[in-house]
Amino acid sequence: MNVNPNTEKPIFIQIAEQLEDSIFTGVFPEETKIPSTNEISVLLNINPHTVLKGMNMLVDDEIIYKKRGLGMFVKEGAVKKIREKRQAQFYDQYVAALISEASKLQMSKEEIIALIERGYEHERHSN
């Protein structure tokens, strides 16, 4: 884990995203404990309240939950939830940005579709 103070993204959101990513990629499997706020705070030299704020975002999204006296645990079904969330965000995050940049570069819809197809082709060959 690492945070970058020089991006526009607030630190607590960076923490939430990185924890979410770790859960999604299986670093912290479902129903296991994730590191405590204190551990993360000491590791990254970040105010524990900031870490907690990031974790609370994941609690609100029902990705992790608090076991009283034990710490934060990954919720059952968290990975599925994250996948669904990211699929829902896919359009805003990638497609909209793609189209906006393409129009700046005066690229046509057909050119973009061709590029996407080339990307898939490349993916298939490299696998």
């Binding site: 705070s41 000491v42 030299n45």
Partner: peptide, 14 residues
């Protein structure tokens, strides 16, 4: 410095 910040944060929560 790193050690100082570590210790500072380690105690802060408890």
């Amino acid at each position: 410095r790193e050690l100082f910040y570590d210790l500072l944060l380690r105690d802060f929560e408890t």
